[in-house]
Write a protein that binds this DNA or RNA. Structure first.
Length: 622
RNA sequence: GCCGGGAUGGCGGAACUGGUAGACGCGCCGGACUCAAAAUCCGGUUCUGGCGACAGAGUGUGGGUUCGAUUCCCUCUCCCGGCACCA
């Protein structure tokens, strides 16, 4: 009933089409504007909606308001008239700016219908039997897939099948089609800020908006401006604003909006591959280097930056500038580092924030150390300039050195986890590096480092060698696959603990200990590069550590002669037995059943079942 | 409101595929060395009971599945992040 006589809607739930009891359109929808022109009340409402926030969180929480347009459409299958409403929860920028209202199976429509007395028609029956008819109050099961009912020839289908059948039927009648709808909305890239990339346009009163000619690019920002906190300083800088029109040569005004920094972050990785090319955006080298093998970013970028950069890459692909669909092959999202937030809010003034390092607790009250007066604690939050709760690593580096600072931070938690900042424990990292340093030099001071006959090791040496190679395998996996640097570091600490206790009285002993130290030095080299570089040379190598290949564990060293198994009775740990590696199940079973403490707990009761987990445990069920 | 992640000793965390809860480190307690302190080294450290061997309890809450659950399923609570103009 618009100009074409058709109201287009987009839905992901075509299976609920027979439950549509109203149509809801966005305030900016052409039909809404046309209706508003005839209805002052509606015009006021449309105006109110436009002024409102379009932020998703606001749209989702605000009251579901609406007014009827007085217009009706016909249901595509039943032909029944359906009233068209303007609703504040429908976004013009998504889909068609119009939705079919199915109160029985959509929470927003349900709330809207309840508020405006619109009928609720159930057309999907719950598969789990959670409900038969949608009645207030709303429960999430109403929105789930199920079996269609009261849907004419489409009744009795599972939701997915119903979507396909209804879509096919609509398509056959020329009333609709299936399509992929990306949740990609319009992106307003201009910002009223000084520090963005200039938008190269000139506004001429005679010629209109004129692009800056290629020969005058790039437009360079003035460097002497100081933002005064009110508006865009570029707009207050006449020498930047005043220019001549490239077309007519008359006086003109330079665009002062700059681009969102998201624009730059959407493709900088492409530019890095060919940063010296000042003739083109990218060249063939981008094709060689991209996609980025491993992208690391904060979890706060999980939506926006990643969405924009993937979108931008596809735009450049469509323009023939690059040949890839996805910019990043692998993604690691780091957790946020949180810190306490403290502020004061003077009456009539702006909030001022204080760094947690400048705040201490006195009698359970946070006070500013400088003046001893209280500050307000605003919980934990991500570190930000605006909240002033960041941490300057240079303090840590100055006191302990860069390697200790790095080791400490990597040891604290796995990178994907969010973390409350604390530098308690930095001493532990410092101590470990010093222990490693001393251990290596103690060994070197014993004289020239011999090589070992690994076939003739005693028990202690064999155990250390096995641990060294197990550690190497674990660290390789932790760093390369799991990215759990904290457990990789913990494993090297354990190896150092054992290695420093191993006797270096014999040449064999010194050789095995040396090998263990080399595993530690090589595997920690990405984390503490300076210390390990020096230690590598102390261990008698003329080469630079950074040139060394990553070592591989020796399968011979990994072999075990015997293994310890846990013995459980009814799932509770009662004892341990040691058996030969690869012992047959009967032997393992007999050993477990003979274990002293386990026998005590079996108490002579008949054994119902014995569960053997090879290499791990035996559980005796009585 | 919706989406994603999380909760384990005094603290950061470990337990990777349902199989020994608390690795490693911090802190704390005790000891050695020292005139003393720092540093270093040795021992202890989930809680409860016990001299001890050991036993009982225990991974935010409540329930379920299993021989066995921090791990899987359901419920609830709290915390962090995102929701398109902080980047």
């Amino acid at each position: 009933m618009g100009s074409s006589g058709v109201l287009k809607v987009f839905t992901t739930r075509a299976d609920t089409l027979f439950g549509a009891t109203f149509m809801a359109i966005a305030a900016e929808h052409p039909l809404a504007l046309a209706a508003a022109a005839r209805d002052p009340e509606l015009a006021a409402f449309v105006d109110e909606c436009r002024r409102g926030s379009t932020m998703e969180a606001d749209v989702a929480t605000q009251e579901k308001k609406g007014l009827p347009t007085g217009l009706h459409v016909r249901h595509p299958f039943t032909g029944a008239p359906i009233e068209v409403w303007v609703a504040n929860y429908v976004l013009m920028g998504y889909g068609e700016g119009a939705v079919m209202g199915v109160p029985a199976h959509d929470e927003r429509d349900f709330e809207f219908a309840g508020r405006h007395g619109i009928p609720i028609v159930t057309v999907v029956k719950s598969k789990s039997g959670a409900y038969g008819k949608a009645v207030a109050p709303w429960i999430p099961a109403y929105g789930e897939h199920g079996i269609t009912v009261d849907s004419g020839e489409f009744s009795g289908l599972e939701s997915d099948a119903a979507v396909d059948a209804i879509a096919a039927a609509l398509e056959a009648r020329g009333l609709g089609a299936k399509r992929v709808q990306f949740r990609l909305r319009d992106w307003g890239i201009s910002r009223q800020r000084y520090w963005g990339c200039p938008i190269p346009l000139i506004h001429c009163p005679a010629c209109g908006d004129v692009p800056v000619p290629d020969k005058d690019l790039p437009v360079v920002l003035p460097e002497h401006l100081v933002p005064d906190g009110s508006g865009n300083p570029l707009a207050k800088t006449p020498e930047f604003v005043h220019c001549t029109c490239p077309q007519c040569g008359g006086p003109a005004r330079r665009e002062t909006d700059t681009m969102d920094t998201f624009v730059d972050s959407s493709w900088y990785f492409l530019r890095f591959a060919c940063a010296d090319n000042d003739e083109a955006m990218v060249d063939a080298r981008a094709h060689y280097w991209l996609p980025v093998d491993q992208y690391i970013g904060g979890i706060e970028h999980a939506i926006l930056h990643l969405l924009y950069s993937r979108f931008w890459t596809r735009v450049m692909r469509d323009l023939g500038l690059v040949q890839l669909d996805e910019p990043f092959a692998k993604l690691l999202t780091q957790g946020m580092v949180l810190n306490h937030i403290y502020y004061r809010h003077p009456e009539g003034g702006r909030r001022s924030y204080f760094n947690p390092a400048d705040v201490e607790m006195r009698d359970g009250v946070p006070v500013l150390i400088a003046d001893g007066k209280p500050v307000v604690h605003d919980g934990l939050g991500t570190m930000s300039k605006s909240k002033g709760n960041g941490v300057d690593p240079s303090k840590l580096i100055g006191e302990f050195g860069a390697d200790t600072a790095r080791l400490f931070m990597m040891f604290t938690a796995p990178p994907e986890q969010s973390l409350e900042w604390s530098d308690e424990g930095v001493q532990g990292a410092f101590r470990f590096i010093r222990r490693l340093w001393k251990a290596v030099h103690d060994l070197v001071s014993l004289g020239p480092l011999p090589s070992a006959d690994f076939a003739a090791l005693d028990m202690e040496q064999k155990a250390l060698r096995r641990l060294a190679h197990e550690t190497l395998a674990k660290v390789t996996d932790d760093i390369g696959r799991r990215h759990t640097f904290n457990t990789a570091i913990a494993a090297t600490m354990e190896l150092l603990n054992v290695a420093t206790r191993t006797s270096t009285a014999s040449a064999q002993g010194r050789a095995v200990v040396r090998e263990a130290y080399e595993v530690i030095v090589l595997t920690l080299s990405p984390i503490i590069p300076h210390v390990t570089h020096a230690l590598w040379q102390s261990l008698g190598h003329a080469t630079a550590l950074i040139e060394e290949p990553w070592p591989k564990p020796d399968p011979v060293a990994l072999v075990r002669d015997e293994i310890e198994l846990v013995v459980q009775v009814n799932g509770k740990l009662r004892g341990r037995v040691t058996v030969a590696a690869g012992a047959p199940e009967e032997v393992v079973r007999a050993a477990a059943l003979a274990e002293e403490n386990a026998c005590r707990f079996m108490g002579g009761k008949p054994v119902r079942k014995v569960i053997i987990v090879p290499g791990k445990l035996v559980n005796i069920v009585v």
